[in-house]
Nucleic acid binder design. Structure first.
Lengths: 237, 237
DNA sequence: CCAAAAGTGTTATCTTTACACCCATGG
DNA sequence: CCATGGGTGTAAAGATAACACTTTTGG
């Protein structure tokens, strides 16, 4: 009952919403960025789209997302989670007219977190460009809604799951961690209360060392403690 | 970049975990049940599996889940949400040996809530049978893990989202609603506190009428108030 | 008038939030 | 010795949990 027929006009792709933090060009404040790829064929030729590709026959879904990430940024993700499977019949030709309805595509979309400083500069430039996540150009297909959804999920999840460290090096201060939360959520957070909440999660281990050269009291450095491994597919609460 | 090649050995299926409440055969307590379908071909012939089928070319994903539901129970779901896309290369031949690796199948799994009293008796019997969700026979493929995941999601979600009403008729008492929560979560809940919490969500509207003939004080009847419509694909928080 | 559940009230406890204040360093 | 964030303390406000108590029906 679960096996499927062979020749259907439905093809399967895996796309990935890749987030990184970098200063906003105008304000200088830390903001979310993501890489897009310029389409080189119809439909939506010339427009920007999420990186991705067809699912290979011998490839796991998450592996496909990882390969896309490697191709686009030159790195492995610090965090990777399935977002949603988008597969409505009409999603290829949403509001643009004039295109013949192409083959139907079901996209399984992942979202990932990487460190901007790790991104290989070399990969950039070709057909890949990074954009401020909240200020994107018009996107191909339904990718704008997908990004919105990924943003919502990231912002929700960072409030109840320790994923912020995925934007940071292995050792970091509580101010660093707080800066990530503030950038993602676009708020300011009380340093005192944030500290207590963060420590209460029991996911931070003090390294014992302090960061030096700060023109003020040296802040303690922490490391992220793995805790229990991921349970079911992904913890989505 | 998102479009896919044509002839890959990957086929797409949609399965659905359908939940309903019914008294437990031993204890008589309300419990979660779900329908399974007996497989009539290899692999896993004769074993029980989640209802589902191949995705039709002109069918939306959620529509496919609805059609499965209609076929299996004779009704439309009161609640339907995408659970996860399972697509690991090895998931067909998990731990059973002796089967040639069949075509690879990616399953997009939905979960649904229905009212047991609405289920058409007729549909039952054929190859469909209902089981206590926490006490299932061995299942085909990776369906046991999928059900576990669906159960976890339902139990998590009922605590912070008003979905319990999907098990109830349009008019119900707070005791009814509490009984649903207790059955799903397998606990007892304080009636006084439950009442306040439920009313605090602002999703319940009193009908003005009371249920009569109870051998005690007649409880007020409520109706579920839709509230804001579903935002992004599905609210997964 | 008794049992049983509906519904309201009250208090203790825990969590969240705001903000005062001391600490340690570089300049 | 001063500016700057690091780090601790604390009290008000809000949410949660436990449970006493009053209400309204059927038998």
């Amino acid at each position: 009952m679960t096996t499927s027929s062979i020749d259907q006009r439905v093809s399967l792709a895996v796309s990935t919403v890749i987030f990184a933090l970098r200063p906003h060009p105008d304000t200088g404040l830390m903001t979310l960025w993501l890489p897009l790829v310029r389409r080189i064929r119809e439909p939506y030729e010339g427009m920007w789209a999420l990186p991705g590709g067809p699912l290979e026959a011998d490839e796991d879904l998450a592996a496909s997302a990882q390969h896309t990430l490697e191709r686009t940024t030159g790195l492995a993700p610090n965090y990777l989670e399935q977002l949603y499977a988008f597969g409505n019949v009409d999603r290829s030709h949403s509001d643009t007219v004039g295109y013949r309805s192409s083959d139907r595509v079901v996209s399984i979309v992942y979202w990932a977190l990487v460190r901007q400083d790790e991104v290989a500069r070399a990969v950039d430039g070709e057909n890949v460009e990074w954009f401020v996540a909240d200020d994107l150009p018009p996107l191909a297909f339904d990718h704008a809604q997908i990004v919105d959804y990924a943003l919502a999920r990231l912002r929700a999840k960072i409030t109840y799951t320790p994923i912020a460290h995925a934007f940071l090096p292995t050792e970091f201060t509580l101010a660093d961690l707080r800066a990530v939360h503030e950038a993602v959520l676009r708020t300011t957070l009380d340093p005192a209360n944030f500290r207590r909440q963060a420590l209460a999660t029991k996911t931070l281990v003090p390294t014992g060392t302090c960061l030096q050269g700060t023109s003020h009291r040296p802040p303690a450095l922490f490391r992220f403690e793995a805790g229990a491994p991921t349970p079911a597919p992904e913890e989505q609460r």
